[in-house]
Design a protein around this nucleic acid. Structure first.
Length: 272
DNA sequence: AGGTCGACCTGGCAGC
DNA sequence: TGCTGCCAGGTCGACC
C-alpha cells in the first residue's frame, strides 16, 4: 500500500501526536502480526517506553523510544495502517492496540497481515535498512549519481525505479506517475536512457514525490493516514489506474501493461 | 551479478 | 445466490 509520500504523511502526523507520549498498554488482537519475537517479549519491549522521535527511511516508519535506546520499526507493506482513535474498540482488521498516556489509542490495522513491526536497539540491525538505496528526496540522489548506475542495465526503467535496493521508497503507483511526467516509456531498458532523459527522470521523481506529500498521498484502496483519511493525490494521479481514460496531455487512451507482474500505466504517445 | 518469479495473506469484485 | 478466478500500493528468497 503506502509508498514514500504516504509513509511520510503518516510520519509527520505521528511526530506531532506521539512526541513525548508514553506507551502504557498494548493489546495483541492477532498474534500473527508479531513476527520477530514472542508476544510477551514484544510487549515488554514496548510498554512503559516514551516516544522521543518519529522518522522515515524508505517505506519504513522509525519510532524512537526512550531517547533512542530502542526503536520500533513499522513496515506497513501493502495494507498496514496506523490510526489514532479515542476509544479502544478494535475494528475487524485491527491487529494491535496501543494505549497512550495522552488518553488516545493507536491502532495497527492490516487485513493481509503482510506488515512487519520489530523492536531493535540499533536501526542497522534491520535487514531492510541494510539493503535499501538512497532517499530520492535526499542530497545523494543527483543526475550524476543516477547516470552511471543506469549504464548497461537491461531491466526496464520502471522495474528499476521500483527496486528499493536501487532507490528507496518508490512503489508501483509513483513509478508509473514519475515516468509519465518524464515522458519516458516504462518498458525502456534502464541503460538506454540518455543524459537528457536521466535529467528529466530525476526532476520528475522529486517533483511527483513532493507534490504527493503536499496532497497527503494517494488512496487507491486501503491507504488511510493516521487520522483515517484518504490521501488527496488520488485526484491528481495522471495515469495510474486510469486505463482507457484520456491522457491528460494528448487525450490518447491510457494503456495498461504488466511489467514484472505489476500493473503499469502509461501513454504510448507521450512516453518514448 | 542481474533479472524474473512465486510466496506470503485476505477480501473485494467481475463474470458466469 | 454462490462459486471461481483475478486483482491489490511490498518485500524476500529461490532460481536461471
Amino acid at each position: 500500500m503506502p509508498e514514500l509520500p504516504e509513509v511520510e504523511t503518516i510520519v509527520r502526523d505521528l511526530r506531532q501526536r506521539l512526541a513525548g507520549v508514553r506507551l502504557i498498554g498494548l493489546t495483541v488482537h492477532d498474534p500473527r502480526i508479531v513476527k520477530f519475537s514472542g508476544i510477551e517479549k514484544f510487549r515488554r519491549q514496548l510498554v512503559g517506553r516514551t516516544v522521543t522521535g518519529v522518522s522515515r527511511r524508505g517505506k519504513a516508519i522509525v519510532i524512537a523510544l526512550d531517547e533512542g535506546k530502542w526503536f520500533l520499526i513499522v513496515q506497513l507493506m501493502m495494507t498496514g495502517q496506523l490510526i489514532f482513535a479515542g476509544h479502544a474498540n478494535p475494528g475487524r482488521d485491527t491487529k494491535l492496540t496501543f494505549r497512550l498516556s495522552s488518553g488516545e489509542y493507536l491502532l495497527y490495522n492490516d487485513y493481509r497481515i503482510f506488515g512487519k513491526l520489530q523492536v531493535v536497539s540499533r536501526c542497522e540491525e534491520v535487514a531492510y535498512f541494510q539493503k535499501i538505496g538512497p532517499e530520492p528526496l535526499g542530497k545523494e540522489f543527483t543526475v550524476d549519481w543516477l547516470m552511471p548506475r543506469l549504464r548497461n542495465r537491461k531491466v526496464s526503467i520502471k522495474t528499476l525505479l521500483m527496486n528499493h535496493t536501487f532507490l528507496a521508497g518508490i512503489g508501483n503507483i509513483y513509478a508509473s506517475e514519475i515516468l509519465f511526467q518524464s515522458g519516458i516509456h516504462p518498458n525502456r531498458p534502464a541503460g538506454s536512457l540518455s543524459r537528457k532523459e536521466a535529467d528529466l527522470l530525476h526532476q520528475a521523481t522529486i517533483e511527483i514525490l513532493k507534490e504527493a506529500i503536499r496532497y497527503r498521498g494517494t488512496s487507491m484502496n486501503t491507504y488511510r493516514d493516521s487520522r483515517g483519511e484518504k490521501g488527496g493525490f488520488i485526484n491528481r494521479v495522471r495515469v495510474y489506474g486510469r486505463e482507457d481514460e484520456a491522457c491528460p496531455r494528448c487525450q490518447t487512451a491510457v494503456s495498461r501493461m504488466v511489467l514484472n507482474g505489476r500493473s503499469t500505466f502509461c501513454c504510448n504517445r507521450c512516453q518514448h
